[in-house]
């Protein structure tokens, strides 16, 4: 087991697992409690549109993904804030259009051969130092913000209307959260890919929810679970030579099933 640590890609992968788990625990908890899961899904798929556009225009793929999902996420953020009755439908449309944009742009880009598969399914084994430093920055920023504004985040997540009656700028918090989700999702795509990112964002918090007594507790427990799943998945992937992203999600799903089974007798 220890010998795999002598490979640099493995050390990077483990570091990526740690950082993405911190981000997932924080962002995942907020989107699950705030019911923004579909928005996160929309952002992830919109990112593919950005990848396609970037390939077509010949700019860095990561930057394309980031800006395109930021742009669409702000539109989706506006839709969710207004609580239009069909917000989820509108997000579903943006989700699909984002993805289709990507596919068509790739079609139109002649001789394009870069690893698009790594965007779909992730490649934690090939994360670069730049990926790691970006993840690290976002993780640290997220944790600091969460410490500083914990009570505001709590009341915003729990009861938006009440927060407004206390004179709290809910709109600002909402958009900041959306931007943060956007950046985080694009970074975590690196680990499990855009198709599977939703699972990594939602499974740990939905397990943690049943065992937590506070928002902070749920964030911490989600992060720990996320790390556990990521490392186990990585080990499974290494041992049986399977795709890392899918292995991580399968381990997480097994954990989810186990927690539901353990919870059954209590209910």
């Amino acid at each position: 087991m220890i010998e795999i640590l002598q490979y640099e890609f493995m050390r990077n992968a483990i570091m990526a697992a740690v950082l993405s788990s911190l981000i997932c625990g924080l962002i995942g908890t907020l989107i699950v409690l705030k019911r923004l899961v579909i928005l996160a899904g929309g952002i992830a798929h919109a990112a593919y549109g950005g990848v396609g556009l970037a390939a077509f225009m010949g700019i860095p793929l990561r930057a394309g993904a980031l800006f395109f999902s930021l742009f669409l996420s702000l539109i989706m953020g506006r839709i969710t804030l207004q609580k239009k009755a069909r917000a989820d439908t509108a997000i579903g449309v943006i989700w699909a259009v984002g993805m289709a944009t990507g596919v068509i742009c790739i079609d139109l880009t002649p001789g394009y051969g870069v690893d698009l598969m790594s965007y779909l399914f992730g490649s934690i084994l090939s994360v670069s130092k730049i990926d790691l430093s970006m993840m690290g920055t976002i993780a640290i920023l997220g944790i600091l913000m969460c410490f500083r504004y914990y009570r505001l985040i709590l009341v915003y997540t729990y009861d938006e209307d009440f927060a407004r009656t206390r004179g709290i700028n809910v709109t600002l918090i909402h958009y900041l959260l959306i931007i943060f989700i956007s950046v985080s999702v694009v970074l975590i795509i690196r680990v499990v890919g855009l198709i599977l990112v939703i699972a990594l964002l939602t499974i740990p918090p939905s397990i943690a929810e049943g065992y937590s007594r506070s928002l902070a507790g749920m964030i911490c427990l989600s992060s720990v679970l996320s790390l556990l799943f990521s490392l186990c998945g990585l080990w499974v992937s290494y041992t049986y030579d399977l795709t890392s992203g899918a292995s991580i999600i399968m381990v997480a799903a097994a954990g989810y099933l186990l927690s539901k089974l353990l919870h059954l007798p209590c209910q």
Binding site: F147, Y150, R151, L152, V155, Y158, F162, R166, I168
Partner: peptide, 10 residues
């Protein structure tokens, strides 16, 4: 949460 206002402590 009732203690929150425009000014609030951490």
């Amino acid at each position: 949460m009732g203690c929150l206002g425009e000014k609030y402590s951490i």
